[in-house]
Design a protein around this nucleic acid. Structure first.
Lengths: 126, 126
DNA sequence: CGGCATCCTGTGAGATACTG
DNA sequence: CAGTATCTCACAGGATGCCG
């Protein structure tokens, strides 16, 4: 297994695209980025309500990951009670631009995907 | 739970970007698309060797999904033994272009992400 | 308010063996 | 050659309860 694992690690290390996809492919991560992009800096509690269906655990976990990756900043205001704001970094902001490309493709082509899917499920044969 | 689930479905239905991310965020799906993009049509067995570490099960499952979504075609040649070729559709090809945008961002910015990550793990505080 | 620690569960990936 | 079928097991992720 050592050999396989070594190859796998090398593969990941050498493939930035793959690692990017791992990041934005994450359901909550992409939603957080978009939310912060649309509304600017947000408090934790506000993010929680803006992103429908996310659990505390996943929100926190996602934010930690994004912070670690330098995509968002975490600002603690030590008032009582505590206030924590999250915002996109310039890096996160540039990623937002790339996400827009994806969005464009999606809005232009997903209907075709839907049609293909419906046809496939109907069992259409050429 | 009905309410929550209903909202969730509506959310997914109304958000093409999210569904696109679900597709290309899938590890094997994106690798298959890129492999077919780089080398043109490929047989099942060739895909299996080109995509390092994929299991039969996941490869088949991934290809079925991509075929269903109209991104790849599956062509069976009923010789003995059977021969099956997979190729990108025009739709899949256009998606490949979008993936290139992602790749560009990744190659330009992932080093920054790596740096941020290393700093975070080192425990650097501002 | 904004978390972390703990427990619990379901999905889904991998290994293995069999088939048209 | 190109799959399908079955099992097992790990881990992502939800629920809950406590803390600074």
């Amino acid at each position: 297994m050592d050999v396989a694992e070594a190859r796998f690690d090398a593969f990941n290390a050498l493939c930035p695209s793959r690692r990017l996809l791992d990041t934005i492919g994450d359901k909550w991560a992409s939603l957080v980025i978009v939310a912060l992009g649309l509304e600017g800096p947000l408090r934790y509690s506000r993010l929680a309500t803006r992103i429908d269906g996310v659990s505390q655990k996943m929100l926190t976990q996602t934010l930690r990951g994004l912070e670690r990756d330098g995509l968002v900043t975490r600002t603690v205001t030590p008032s009582v009670p505590v206030r924590v704001d999250y915002a996109l970094t310039p890096l996160g902001l540039s990623l937002l631009g790339t996400l827009r490309h994806l969005k464009d493709w999606a809005e232009e082509h997903m209907p075709q995907v839907d049609a293909a899917r419906a046809a496939y499920d109907r069992g259409d044969r050429v």
